[in-house]
Computed example of a mutant assay.
Amino acid sequence: MTAPIETTGAAEAQPEAVLSGADKGQIEGRSLGQIAWTRFKKDRVAVAGGIVVILLVLLALLARPIQALFGLDPNAFNQDLIDPNTSLPTGSWGGMSADHPLGVEPKFGRDIATRILEGSWVSLVVAFGATILSNTIGTVLGVIAGYYGGRVDAIISRLMDTFLAFPLLLFAIAISATLQGGAFGLEGLPLHITVLIFIIGFFNWPYLGRIVRGQTLALREREFVDASRGMGAKGPYILFRELLPNLVGPIIVYSTLLIPTNILFEASLSFLGVGIQPPQASWGGMLNQAVDFYEVDPQFMIVPGLAIFVTVLAFNLLGDGLRDALDPRSR
């Protein structure tokens, strides 16, 4: 007979041995935000897009201080740089020089770089303002429709369908053209910016509203909502303290994708002549002025076109990265 195998001894971990290294390092948990940030940092394309977005926002915020610091005037005419016979900039590449690194406009000779800088804050103010307005309306109505359901959901859903049926571009052209002179005690640039923010933001809220409604329909059946009801929480408390914090991720992702859409919409209205009015610089307005010169001076059209392209691309890359970081199952 063989000797029995002993199961006690070194193979059995002693409590003292297990606890001996417990004080050498603590295992710390990570929040959902930290986990999302770790995922986001691994996406180099999204990080690059985020860096470009930060730089664009800083340029927009510092546009007026930079102009004041260096004595730049986006509406200053430089007729000495324009050929009187052709109305084109003298020199090559649209009049590019050390003083005018991106050249000057045909006919007027205004510095393109300064006007691009001036137009950046206009585009971003309209885009961010319209996004905040549409997100506020869409989030509130979407979470109410999804949580209460029934008749409330039916009314809000039909309201969403009504707004989605509007021919937004034609409606925006009609309103902008009507309010060009003055309204609501405003005139000039403040009026144009306010009208654009209202038109773009007020009529775009159903897109986010549908997303929030769908997410709320799923969240309202979760255990934490039932627990809140069981503890006596009322509807408003559940909406804004339980459901809304869990909708922050989708709202942030959609916002980063909506901002470039709003930038393009503002540029389209300015290009059609019913948005930001000259002499105020805007990227869409610069493209409108470049239509008559794109064959003989393509520089004038390429620069504002690239400004719009880079801005929209950066926001889209950032939005895709945030979506993957906040919801890895969407990959």
Rank of each mutant, 00 (worst) to 15 (best):
L133D: 13
P101I: 10
Y147C: 00
R222N: 14
L141M: 10
S255C: 02
V53K: 07
I132K: 10
A281N: 05
W93K: 11
L124S: 04
T136W: 11
G201R: 02
F166H: 02
L186C: 13
T136F: 15
S228G: 15
T139M: 11
G188K: 09
D111E: 09
N135S: 15
T86Q: 10
V195N: 09
Q67E: 15
G201S: 11
F163N: 07
L326W: 01
F70C: 00
D83S: 09
R44V: 11
N85G: 12
P84I: 02
R329P: 08
L258R: 15
A13G: 04
L318Q: 07
G71E: 01
D153R: 01
R241F: 04
M231T: 13
I5N: 13
G232T: 09
H192Y: 04
G305A: 00
I211W: 06
H100M: 08
L287I: 13
L179Y: 13
P4K: 12
Q26G: 04
F271H: 04
D297E: 15
S87M: 14
G49E: 12
Q14N: 00
V312Y: 05
W205H: 03
D80M: 01
L191E: 11
G119L: 03
G285L: 00
L69M: 15
F171V: 13
S97V: 07
R158T: 07
G150P: 08
F300N: 01
A227M: 03
W93L: 15
A145W: 02
G91Q: 07
F202P: 15
L72K: 06
T90D: 03
L247E: 13
A281H: 01
G201E: 07
R64K: 13
L306W: 02
F224R: 11
A314I: 10
G9M: 00
V57H: 04
M160A: 01
D292S: 13
T7R: 14
E242F: 00
V18P: 05
I5W: 01
E12M: 02
L56S: 08
L208R: 14
L159F: 15
G29N: 08
